[in-house]
Each structure stands twice: as C-alpha cells, then as structure tokens.
C-alpha cells in the first residue's frame, strides 16, 4: 500500500507513530475487549463445563465438544444452513448485481425511484419484515392465493414443510438484496466513465461492457458482499425464529444452529452446551470465511 511505502523511509517517526496509532484506536480497542473478547472468552470458559439440573455445574473439559460432533440436531441444522448458503447467496448477489448494472446504465428518474424502492426493505427491521411476510404467506389471508389464481395456478403452501425453504429464501432476498445492490451500485458509480466510454463508441454492447469491464472492476465489492452474505446465512436466526410463531411444527426449535443454541440456552436451561454450540458454529463460520478469502485472495482487498 502507498502509505506503508512512504512511511518506510521515515523510521524515526515509528515511536511517535506507534503511540498515536494506539491512541486513535484505543477507544475501539476498549469496546472490543469489553464487549467482544471478554464475553467470548467467558463463553469458551462456560463451554468447558456441563450443567445438569441435579448435580449443577461440573468441569467436563472437551466433553461438550465431543457431544457436538455426534449431535444429530446440530448436524442437521448445519447442513441446512449450508444448503441455504448455496441457494441464497447466489440468488441475492446475482439479483443485486443485475439490478445494480441495470440502474447504473439506465440514467432515468425512474431508475432512482426504483433504487430507493429496492433499498427500502433494508430500512425495515428484520423482525417486522419477517412478521409481514408471515402474514402474507397465510393461505387464506395472504394475497398469493388470489395472485396465483390470476395465472391459473394454485399458490404453493408457503408454510408447509415443503414450502418453508423457499419462503425463507424469499424473505431474506427481499430484505437484503437492496443493501447489496447499493454497495455494488456505489462501486459501479465510482468507475471512471472513460474506462468504458471508448468501448461504447467502438460499438460494444451494454452486456459486453458489463461483463468485460464493469464486473471485473467491482469484483472486490462483490467478494465483500459475498462474505457478508455467507456469514449472515450461516448464522441464520431472526427470520425463521419469527416465522416459527406461525408454523411451529414446520420450523422446529433447532432448525438452524443459532436457533438451536438459543433454544438450549433459553428453553432447555443448558447454557454451557449452548455456548459450545455457538462456539463451534463461530469456528465453522470463521473457517468458511477464511477458505473463501484464501480462494479470492488476490481480489478481495482484505489483506494488507
């Protein structure tokens, strides 16, 4: 990076720089240690104990981690969120990228109106978003029975065990596509027009400009969005939790690993095992993210 090179020649500043660097980052460091490091370490500490109602809390070493490895509920949940990741991340980002490209090249007033509209769901708390979709998924009260009958087909049963996967994908797509779209759109906007103006004059189609020039230039943003989306999906929690109120037998309390951790801690009074589940999930998320960042190392911009 530029400034590192520049600074390399100024060794004598290092001591002073050292001090000021820490001064500027100190407030964050304090917050970071107090609200992240300490609770996390505490959670890890808790995961080394086992609590049973009768004998209370006992040190049990890695016994909880052994239990996680063979825990069917955890395994199922993990498999499910991986499946969600495989389906949801490409849909969200594909849609976001497509819309961003469309809006970038379509400079009409209607485009800026659409941009706000698409971004709007991000302003709505996930709790309320899921609540609204839950109502709309209702077979008798929601609009879909009518909408689908206009096309002569029967509306799917959104809240059945077959339909719930798609229903949840839809809620998340609705909520987050706009956010990723804005990030990608911002990136597109900051590409100097000269870069593709000449190609345009040479008669290249918009599609070609998009795939050959624009998309390669926003790869960094695209990867960043993918990482966010990946992390978010593996931690899937709020939307299924809210929809569970509507369909408790379709979405069991251990549907995703995060929900399982929540049920263990709050429903079954197994705080210690819950900490183990959360910790294992965190570890898996970190591993996934590192693999992904390694795979895309050259263009993700996250290295230093």
């Amino acid at each position: 990076m530029n400034q590192t090179k520049a600074l390399r020649g100024k060794r004598k500043h290092y001591g002073k720089e050292n001090l000021w660097g820490w001064i500027f980052t100190a407030p964050f460091a304090v917050v970071f240690v107090v609200f992240l490091v300490i609770p996390l370490v505490y959670a890890f500490y808790m995961s080394l104990f086992t609590y049973t109602q009768i004998s209370g809390e006992r040190f049990s070493g890695i016994a909880n981690y052994v239990r996680v490895l063979t825990d069917e509920a955890f395994g199922k949940g993990l498999l499910l969120v991986v499946l969600y990741t495989i389906v949801m991340v490409p849909i969200q980002l594909g849609l976001a990228l497509g819309l961003a490209l469309l809006l970038d090249s379509f400079k009409k007033k209607f485009a800026s109106v659409s941009r706000v509209v698409i971004f709007l769901p991000y302003a709505i708390p996930a709790v309320i978003g899921a609540l609204m979709w839950g109502f709309m998924y209702s077979k008798l009260m929601g609009p879909f029975t009518t909408i689908f009958s206009l096309f002569g087909v029967q509306a799917p049963d959104f809240l059945s065990s077959n339909g719930i996967f798609g229903s949840l994908v839809n809620v998340v797509t609705w909520q987050w596509t706009g956010y990723y779209m804005i990030i990608l759109y911002s990136a597109l906007q900051s590409i100097p027009t000269e870069l593709y103006e000449s190609a345009r004059i040479d008669g290249a189609s918009e599609l070609k400009i998009a795939t050959r020039i624009k998309i390669p230039l926003v790869t960094g943003s695209l990867i960043m969005c993918t990482i966010f989306s990946l992390i978010g999906t593996l931690q899937f929690f709020t939307e299924p939790t809210i929809l569970r109120n509507q369909a408790p037998t379709v979405i069991p309390s251990e549907y995703t690993p995060n929900m399982y951790a929540q049920a263990l801690a709050f429903g079954y009074n197994q705080t210690n095992y819950s900490a183990t589940v959360s910790f294992s999930l965190g570890l898996i998320v970190v591993i996934f993210s590192i693999i992904f960042m390694r795979l895309t190392r050259r263009s993700n911009g996250l290295g230093d």
Binding site: F135, L140, M141, Q246, V250
Partner: peptide, 14 residues
C-alpha cells in the same frame, strides 16, 4: 394444523 398459525384463526372465524 398449527393452532398458532393465523390461517387456523381465520378458519375458526369463518
């Protein structure tokens, strides 16, 4: 059906 589903409530009311 799940009793907590709003559809069940709707059916009940209907």
């Amino acid at each position: 059906a799940d009793q907590s589903s709003t559809d069940t409530m709707k059916k009940f009311g209907a």
